[in-house]
């Protein structure tokens, strides 16, 4: 298949799943004729027609709510919320129904649906277009929250999400949409939801991160190697919830030092959960306080100040060095 960016890789996952399974349908605002504001759904309308690729009215609660109804009757909706900042209107349907229907009906109806939304900063957009509030979903029992970091994983995870019998929130780091290309195999590839991955091995410090923060964390790890002779291990979380704590708690037993990097606000963010798991499972191996390098607990500023809000290599390095020097 050759090298693809994340937009093309997600598009490939959608195309292949729609080809394979006639019950998979795509719905959302501008997903049809326009191919999505980020072009993620480009070409799907021509290939699968307007019954399966639905340009909906502008109504996020309905997009999620109608998807719940479709899933009750056996369709597998993959709905797009144009920006995660608008997904809070859908949140009620996801929390009140998608997440609970299986339990409410004692197993009769599981809601097999995916709610895709671009999240995070990096595209010089307006207010409400840059947030990273995956914690809202991760805090909700019954949902799964997945955040890929690059093209290949995005494709594999989306295929898994579409096939998952439970509702999956699929947050796409828009900063990584076209940032780099990766080899994406033509043949079907899945990746288990609920599994993290060690993307760089090291013995001195552990970084736990996900989404658009992975690349800059890897850059920081390289710098640490070059400038400090420190071997950093980097773990890509991939699924925020249910959280795979096995790899990172084991890693920290080896390194004793840990830095959590995410774009989301710090307080009550995914990093807080990681820190709690580390304390519960690897407390005696910690040689320094757990360090969180995250977005601040402020409304994310407009794009001129966005780079000050979102962790960058400098902040990651600073956090790592303080931890190592503790």
């Amino acid at each position: 298949m050759g090298k693809m960016n994340m937009v093309e890789a997600i598009n490939l996952a959608l195309k292949q799943e729609m080809e394979k399974d006639g019950d998979v349908i795509v719905l959302g605002e501008d997903v049809g004729v326009d191919g999505g504001v980020f072009r993620v759904t480009e070409g799907l309308l021509d290939a699968y027609g307007e019954e399966r690729v639905i340009d909906t009215p502008l109504a996020e609660s309905m997009i999620a709510g109608a998807s719940v109804g479709m899933a009750i009757h056996g369709l597998k909706p993959v709905c797009e919320i144009q920006f995660s900042g608008f997904s809070y209107i859908s949140f009620h349907q996801m929390e009140a129904h998608a997440a609970r229907y299986r339990a409410r009906t004692q197993g009769r109806f599981g809601i097999q649906m995916v709610l895709r939304c671009p999240y995070g900063g990096g595209v010089r957009a307006l207010e409400h277009h840059s947030e990273s509030r995956e914690a809202y979903y991760a805090h909700t029992p019954g949902l799964k929250t997945v955040i890929p970091s690059g093209p290949r994983k995005a494709r594999a995870l989306l295929v898994s999400a579409i096939r998952d019998p439970d509702p999956v929130i699929f947050y796409e780091p828009k900063a990584a949409y076209r940032a780099f290309r990766e080899e994406v195999p033509e043949d079907e590839e899945t990746f288990p939801i609920g599994e993290s991955e060690i993307v760089r091995e090291g013995k001195d410090i552990t970084f736990i991160t996900y989404g658009a923060m992975l690349q800059r964390t890897l850059d920081a790890a390289d710098t640490l190697q070059e400038e400090d002779g420190v071997e950093a291990e980097v773990i890509d979380l991939l699924t925020v919830s249910p959280m795979d704590d096995q790899k990172f708690t084991e890693s920290v037993r080896k390194t004793g030092h840990v830095v959590i990097v995410h774009e989301a606000h710090r307080s009550f963010g995914p990093g807080a959960e990681m820190a709690a798991r580390l304390v519960e499972k690897s407390f005696l191996y910690l040689e320094a306080p757990i360090r969180r390098v995250t977005g601040y607990d402020v409304v994310i500023p407009l794009y001129q100040r966005e780079k000050d809000y979102i962790p960058d290599v400098k902040r990651i390095l600073h956090g790592a060095r303080e931890t190592l020097e503790f």
Binding site: V68, M70, I72, L75, Q93, H97
Partner: peptide, 12 residues
């Protein structure tokens, strides 16, 4: 909140 479900189910 059941209203959109009915619309989506009927779509299916």
């Amino acid at each position: 909140t059941q209203v959109p479900h009915a619309a989506g189910l009927a779509y299916a």
